[in-house]
Structures are given as structure tokens and as C-alpha cells.
């Protein structure tokens, strides 16, 4: 689709530099101490003047991750410290908002540091609108990735000095699903993600009951003796509907495998190695691999079943671990 006309106005602004935004306060020990207290940081470089005096800085410095905090406006929106520009470095986001992309989510925060900042330094930053991407649709909705680069300076009589930079990328979007306010009084809860449960039918129940009992069962045709997996109501060879099960040794070899990286779907750990196991009895099955190192998984390696419990015992799955040949 051709881009809307108003977007050319947005694109024309790419590359533009916006003026200074000053910090309300000089870099100071109380704010550093409170930041460290809340973050759980106990590095004496930020907290212990005696220790800090022995370092190349000769005194306390601010934690590097605090850089951006110094220059935030505080409680009142757009209430910038004296001397700050009247320009709005975020005007592009406002334009996008006005054209139907109301939501925003931060995607990247890339801090880089020229040097650490010391007590008493007065900071400010300038902003460059670095990029506005093509329209993209993500799981959240449709919109634009907007990248701002903020350069942080320390004001000095002999000439201001750059101390660090923040590349900040947001996704400004029209939500795929309009977020519904959560009902008042509803119990706030962190959603708990569980593994999907297997669908179970009369043809397959024995397998999962066996797994719950710590047994790996294979279906066997009682007429011709053929083993089969995945289970089925009828023999693939002789079409008999009569069957029983045999307990597998749980030993086998890796016939093939994948290591899943993306998308990362909770509650699974990634990378997530999955094997196609050929049991010594001759049938194959899919199962998770445990105790393997990415890059060291080999087709043909010997594996042994073990049963793992997931989601507080709600689900048991056969998993396979490499063993010596």
C-alpha cells in the first residue's frame, strides 16, 4: 500500500536534532544512594566515598544505568528544568498518535558510556530523530518503529563534554486488540503459563496413563504382533482391532532433532531441543531432550527415557537424555 501523505511530513523530520533538555539536579549522592538501595546495588564505587577516592575517579560516581534518570522531567509532564528547549523531541510520536496509532511500547534501550559522571556534574541531553521504519504489523498491532538517539553532555566552563548516549526505540502502534480496562476490583494476577495438555482419546489413553505411572508403553497388535506408535485403533499391517501394550525399555537412539529458538512461547525454555527417538523396539516417537548441549547433539546418539513432571504435577512427559553407547 502506498504510504499516507501525512507520513511524508513525519519522514521529513528524520535526522532532525532537537534542543537541550536539562537535568533538574546536579549528579548527587542522595539520589544515587536511593537508586542503589531500590535496585539492590551495593557497589562501593557509588556508595562509599572512601573506596571511591581510591579509584581513577577520585570520588563517587553515578551508576551508568542511571544516566537517563538525571534528565527526566519528574512528576509534572513536560515540566523541564530551566534552560531546556521548548521543542518537543517526541513530536513525531504525537503526529503518529493523531493519525490513529495511540499505543506505544518500548523496544530497545541501548546505553553507551563515554565515561562515568561524578558528583556535582550538570547534565543535559539533545535528541536526534534517527529513524522511522516502514509500517509493520506485530503481535501487538500495526505501526511504526521510531528510533531516537539522545546524546548526554556534562556542562563545563571549558566546553561541554559528551558523557554517553541512549538509543531508544519504541513501537508506536494501533493495537490489534483494543486493550480493555481491567475490571475494577478484579483480582490482579500474573498470568501463569502452562504446557498445553495432550488431547487424549480412547485410542491413546493407555499411553498417557502409562506415562503417569512411569512407564513407556507401546501398542502391540495381538493378532500379528506389530508394534505401533503413534497409537491407532487398528493395525496398519493386518487391520485387526485387537491390541495390548508392551512396556518399552526406554532405550533408543536419536533419529533426528531440532533446536527451537523462535518464537519464544511461554512456558517453554529456549533454546528448546526436541528429538525424534527411535526406540530399540523399533518405533519412533517425539519427545523433549534433556541434558544435551546445543551443538553437541548428534543423530545416532544413545538416549534413555526419564519421566518429568510439569506444572505442579499436572502433566508428566517422557523425556530423553543421552547415555553412553
Amino acid at each position: 500500500m502506498a504510504e499516507q501523505e501525512w507520513m511524508s511530513e513525519v519522514r521529513a523530520k528524520v535526522g532532525r536534532e532537537y534542543g537541550r533538555v536539562y537535568a533538574w539536579d546536579e549528579v548527587n549522592a542522595p539520589m544515587i544512594r536511593q537508586w542503589c538501595e531500590v535496585m539492590g546495588v551495593d557497589n562501593p564505587l557509588y556508595l562509599d566515598a572512601d573506596h571511591a577516592a581510591t579509584t581513577e575517579f577520585g570520588g563517587i560516581v553515578a551508576p551508568p544505568a542511571m544516566l537517563q534518570a538525571w534528565c527526566l522531567e519528574g512528576l509534572h509532564m513536560n515540566n523541564y528544568a530551566p534552560g531546556s528547549t521548548d521543542e518537543n523531541p517526541y513530536e513525531v510520536l504525537k503526529t503518529l498518535e493523531a493519525h490513529g496509532y495511540p499505543s506505544v511500547v518500548a523496544v530497545n534501550s541501548d546505553l553507551s558510556f563515554e565515561r562515568y559522571v561524578k558528583l556535582g556534574e550538570k547534565l543535559y541531553y539533545t535528541t536526534r530523530l534517527d529513524a522511522v521504519g516502514e509500517e509493520k504489523t506485530t503481535a501487538l498491532g500495526t505501526g511504526y518503529f521510531v528510533t531516537l538517539i539522545m546524546s548526554f553532555f556534562s556542562q563545563k566552563p571549558e566546553g561541554d563534554e559528551k558523557v554517553g548516549q541512549l538509543l531508544f526505540r519504541v513501537f508506536k502502534f494501533r493495537p490489534a486488540n483494543v486493550p480493555k480496562p481491567v475490571e475494577k476490583g478484579a483480582a490482579p494476577a500474573v498470568p501463569k503459563f502452562k504446557r498445553p495438555k495432550p488431547g487424549i482419546s480412547d485410542d491413546t489413553r493407555f499411553f498417557w496413563e502409562g506415562v503417569d505411572a512411569g512407564k513407556l508403553l507401546i501398542q502391540r497388535c495381538t493378532c500379528c504382533g506389530t508394534l505401533r506408535h503413534p497409537p491407532a485403533p487398528v493395525c496398519i499391517k493386518c487391520h485387526s482391532f485387537d491390541w495390548d501394550t508392551v512396556e518399552a525399555s526406554g532405550k533408543g537412539q536419536l533419529y533426528s532433532f531440532v533446536v527451537m529458538h523462535y518464537p519464544e512461547v511461554p512456558p517453554f525454555e529456549h533454546p528448546n531441543p526436541i528429538g525424534l527417538i527411535e526406540l530399540d523396539e523399533g518405533v519412533r516417537l517425539i519427545a523433549g531432550l534433556v541434558g544435551v548441549k546445543r551443538g553437541e547433539i548428534r543423530i545416532g546418539q544413545r538416549v534413555q527415557v526419564e519421566f518429568q513432571s510439569f506444572d505442579d504435577g499436572e502433566l508428566t512427559l517422557p523425556m530423553f537424555r543421552p547415555v553412553a553407547a
Binding site: P198, G199, T204, N272, I274, I286, L317
Partner: peptide, 10 residues
């Protein structure tokens, strides 16, 4: 059901 519980799902 043979695949989803393992996160073998794409």
C-alpha cells in the same frame, strides 16, 4: 497432543 506439550509447535 504428541507434539504440543513439548513446545514442538511451529
Amino acid at each position: 497432543g504428541w507434539y504440543m506439550p513439548y513446545g514442538f509447535h511451529t
